[in-house]
Amino acid sequence: MMQQRAFALAALAAAVLAVPAAAAELEPLSSFDTITDEAARSVALFTEAGKVIEHPRCLNCHPVDNVPTQGMDMHPHEPPVVRGEADMGAAGMMCTTCHGPENVRVVAQADTLTSIPGSATWHLAPISMAWAGKSLGEICTQIKDPERNGGMSLDDIVEHMSHDDLVGWGWEPGEGREPVPGTQAEFGALISAWVETGAHCPQ
């Protein structure tokens, strides 16, 4: 039996392994055409987008408390970190103490931690945008609420979901992490169609 040491695995295939196996997919917009009731279609579109929204990759940085989580099992972030006043970490140990403008591959180190994720604006979602532990309906209502969504209009939300770099990180989370389903373009299209159909929320 071929037994490769962790770092051998990590290295040889660095570039190739960047996207772990079988990324899940999103249903194309056309598959919702059969739903004739617009409100029902709207709900179905958001429910499909929920595959992304409720993916641990997204929930991990939308915690309901002050501690982000990590991994598909959503365990508390290690080393321990806190939200901080500006959602950027604690004074002296900010998000940027470890997270840079891009994902960084870790070479010849832990086989269970093969990259440090990064993005230009790496930070936690504000507490008003907390998702973890909430139902998709609650999340949906919250996303539409300018009081809680950072004052965004529905058009702003479509733009944000479709093009924001930190949202986009979910599809390129770095080596060793499962990306969220589909593509950001497909996700943006679902959100756009959801808005166009009245932005109805699941119960």
């Binding site: 080393p79 321990p80 970190v81 806190v82 901080g84 604690a90 004074a91 002296g92 140990m93 103490t97 470890c98």
Partner: peptide
């Protein structure tokens, strides 16, 4: 880490120290 903390928070509480130094 301690110097960075004090540059940002001149009089840190125990909680500030925990948060800054836990890494």
């Amino acid at each position: 880490s301690a110097v960075a903390l004090l540059q940002l928070v001149p009089k840190p509480s125990d909680a500030d120290i925990d948060n800054a130094m836990a890494g």
